[in-house]
Design a protein around this nucleic acid. Structure first.
Length: 426
RNA sequence: GGAGAGGUGGCCGAGUGGUUGAAGGCGCACGCUUGGAAAGCGUGUGUAGGGGAAACUCUACCGAGGGUUCGAAUCCCUCCCUCUCCGCCA
């Protein structure tokens, strides 16, 4: 959520920066400013009437004690009460609309965010490693089903398309990866592990920005207003919702493993083959709550923490920066990390690292007490996958496949997996 | 799921229709006092929004949302949460 004061004071700047995203959201700003003016005028008017009622009503008690007739005053107050009610209703309606508009307007991309209309305009920031030289590499679906570790057919029977059943060494590999990632970030990068509910309420989903705009993409339970978390970002960041933290308690660095649930409606084909796009997938998520002065340094470090995963696993990747037309609704700046999948001959996004500045913090009322001014100031929030599991899994199988169909396990993972390879089926 | 008891500031806690401008205490901050410290004394101590150049000021907020009333922390309704007991249960 953007700061209404900033919008009020610099409408042109805000409009331009929101407009850089493409889409129509910038058009809402005029209506927003109109609401703001009507609301403030109404509030002042209402307050004056409330003041009058409060002062006069107080006298009634004293008058009654003195045995005087208060019918006239009461009638006058009743009239003021009606006026207050009428103005209040109007103000409430406008206020609700203003909030709705504010929740719908996306964040402003950072001024240095590369301008572009879609993902083709995302500049590459850096690459690491090289594409492995493989003769006729097989893809993970072929490899995984041949080895009997990935069972797509059973998943369809249980839940439908977009789900996976891991078997034997395949299940253990998934579990090994989760433990490897959590240990790496807690012991090497200074994050504190949290275990959180996978089901969250509407306030959480609004706080991090999934709602109101993306309700159709989420699995929800209609009756009790709970949602399956689409990412650990939601429950983890919302741990801090409605908190005023001491400045000394910043930064907060948290890491969590959770499954993630997404409807991902309408996608099919090569982009979603096998494990690449799932309705349920595992992810280890990094979340940072920081002082506004440090948030861009924190983003660089967070991205490096995620990259470390791929470096330790020896997987070639590239980092790209999302342009104004591709950066997510709540984010001001985002790096995507894309791992090379030889079997697909494509880079796959395994991590998206974003600085939301105070956009999420304002939605969820997450502040810290500034030492000098003693004021409550909105924190900056960041998160990034560290990393998503399925595409990491894909890259591992496809990168470390051997001519006989077996899979070598990178050294860093061996202590967790308990073996140096997944042997081919005889 | 059932029954009962509760939910008031950073914390404890008073308060069942009108100086509540939320008592009192604790904590915290600053000051006085002191050789230094403790004790003691004094002052201050929330959030959001509106108005104002500012000093400042107004309004709202006693779990949440509605209602009754000239006036609600206080009365009524709905919901949420916590505790105790019962039921169910990995």
């Amino acid at each position: 959520m953007l700061d209404i004061r900033i919008i009020r004071e610099n409408p042109e700047t805000v409009r331009e920066r929101v407009k850089a995203r493409g889409g129509d959201a910038w058009k809402l700003i005029d209506e927003l400013l109109e609401c703001d003016e009507v609301r403030r005028k109404g509030e002042t008017e209402k307050q004056q009437l409330q003041n009058e009622r409060k002062t006069e009503s107080k006298k009634i008690g004293a008058l009654k004690k003195a045995g005087e007739d208060t019918a006239a005053v009461e009638a006058a107050m009743r009239k003021i009460g009606d006026q207050i009610k009428a103005i209040g209703d109007k103000v409430d309606a406008v206020d609700a609309r203003q909030r709705e508009l504010l929740l719908s307007i996306p964040n402003m991309p950072h001024p240095n965010c590369p301008v572009g209309s879609d993902e083709t305009a995302n500049p590459e920031v850096r690459t690491w490693g090289e594409k492995p030289h493989l003769e006729a590499p097989r893809d993970h679906v072929d490899l995984g089903t041949s080895l009997g570790i990935l069972d797509f057919e059973s998943a369809v029977k249980i839940s439908g398309s977009g789900f996976i059943v891991f078997r034997g060494a395949g299940a253990k590999l998934e579990r090994a990866l989760i433990n490897f990632l959590l240990d790496l970030h807690t012991t090497e990068h200074g994050y504190t592990e949290v275990g959180v509910p996978f089901v969250v309420n509407r306030d959480c989903m609004t706080g991090t920005g999934q709602l109101p705009k993306f309700e159709d993409d989420m699995y929800g339970t209609e009756n009790n207003e709970l949602f399956l978390a689409p990412t650990a970002e939601v429950p983890v960041t919302n741990l801090m919702r409605d908190e005023i933290v001491a400045a000394d308690d910043l930064p907060v660095h948290m890491v969590a493993y959770t499954p993630c649930f997404r409807r991902e409606a309408g996608s099919a084909g090569r982009e979603s083959k096998g494990l690449i796009r799932m309705h349920q997938f595992d992810k280890v998520e990094l979340v940072k709550i920081v002082h506004p002065d440090n948030s861009y340094d924190a983003l660089e470090k967070l991205t490096a923490d995620a990259e470390k995963v791929l470096q330790l696993l020896g997987l070639h990747y590239r980092v790209i920066e999302l342009c104004t037309g591709d950066v997510g609704n709540s984010a001001a700046k985002t790096y995507d990390i894309e791992v090379w999948a030889p079997g697909h001959g494509a880079y796959l996004e395994v991590s998206s690292c974003s600085n939301f500045e105070d956009y999420q913090a304002r939605r969820m009322g997450l502040r810290f007490k500034d030492k000098e001014t003693k004021k409550n100031v909105f924190c900056h929030t960041l998160n990034g996958s560290g990393t998503a599991l399925p595409r990491l899994y894909v890259a591992l199988l496809e990168t470390y496949q051997q001519p006989d169909g077996s899979i070598n396990i990178p050294e860093a993972l061996q202590p967790y997996f308990g073996a140096d390879s997944i042997p081919a089926k005889s």
